[in-house]
Write a protein that binds this DNA or RNA. Structure first.
Length: 283
DNA sequence: CAAATTTGACCCCT
DNA sequence: AGGGGTCAAATTTG
């Protein structure tokens, strides 16, 4: 199955699980806050899945040249760099507001300042690159216009059998992307609860507005998707607090986003009707 | 101590 | 010449 399809399924499964927990949460008088967080997370997941599907259509348009990194070091190591064969590969570019957890383990092998953009680009390869000759790579760069978004460019498909091991850490470190903006990688309270920058909050809330619209109208358009200089403008947002703890997909993004949820409350009241129904449907 | 990250050097391409 | 991608030694992390 193609990678993006797995990603979509993964997203939807997460959404389903969250929805279940949400129901029981609401039933059993759990904290309103955690319910809100879950709803926010669910919305995020669905948006993510939608974006993934949207981009899948465009895949053929973003075929690009890229290198094949085969290490046949038949050549002596006299010179440092090995010559690499060239090959055309598919380059998928995802943009969006979504979770980081793409189910694979990545290992960072480089970082570069990119001319023209203020944020560095991180280079990752599949952890099983050498053990299983998995050629998958990805590049991650914090968006200039929207610092809460990470543009992620996938190069090559995974051929490894990893996975399964409930993606312990897809959690690639993005500490360098953060500067003051860093969101707890290793989970937990510290910086998660308080956004350090106002812009971060604003963006999150704007995002919520968008999500509310989706939720309200139940219609999903792709109009928001734009193209910006080779990279899709809104990719999969690399979410810095991946499920290192595989359990909840709670993200710091959400945690901050929820800080000011007063305006969204009305939407939850309309949920009340659904709850009972949902329990039957989703259990 | 092994695995992952950091970071400057190196290399290719335009 | 310089921008972008990768290597690999040093360093950090688990």
């Amino acid at each position: 199955m193609a990678m993006e399809e797995k990603l979509v399924i993964n997203e939807l499964e997460q959404g389903r699980e969250l929805a279940k927990r949400l129901i029981s949460n609401l039933k059993h008088t759990s904290s309103v806050e955690s319910s809100k967080i879950m709803i926010s997370e669910i919305l995020r997941i669905y948006q993510n899945a939608i974006l993934m599907l949207s981009f899948k259509e465009d895949d053929k348009n973003i075929l690009k040249r890229s290198r094949e990194i085969e290490e046949k070091d038949s050549k002596t190591l006299s010179k440092k760099r090995k010559l690499s064969d060239k090959k055309t590969e598919e380059v998928r570019v995802f943009v969006g507001t979504g979770s980081i957890d793409d189910g694979y383990c990545w290992r960072k092998y480089g970082q570069k300042e990119i001319h023209g953009s203020s944020n560095p680009r991180g280079y990752f390869r599949c952890t099983h690159r050498f053990t299983q000759k998995c050629p998958a790579q990805k590049q991650v760069q914090r968006s200039d216009k929207d610092p809460s978004i990470f543009e992620v460019k996938y190069v090559g498909n995974h051929t490894c059998n990893n996975n399964s091991t409930s993606p312990k850490t897809t959690a690639t470190s993005f500490s360098m992307f953060g500067e003051g903006n860093r969101v707890g990688l290793t989970e937990q309270t510290e910086d998660i609860n308080k956004p350090t920058k106002t812009e971060e909050v604003v963006i999150s809330l704007e995002d919520l507005e968008y999500k509310k619209d989706i939720f309200k109208t139940y219609s999903f358009s792709n109009d928001e998707i734009e193209n910006v200089g080779g990279w899709k403008s809104n990719i999969f947002q690399e979410n810095l607090s991946p499920a290192t703890t595989s359990g909840s997909g709670m993200t710091s993004e959400i945690a901050t986003a929820v800080e000011d949820w007063g305006t969204v409350d009305s939407y939850f009241s309309s949920l009340d009707n659904i709850i009972d129904l949902g329990q039957d449907l989703w259990s």
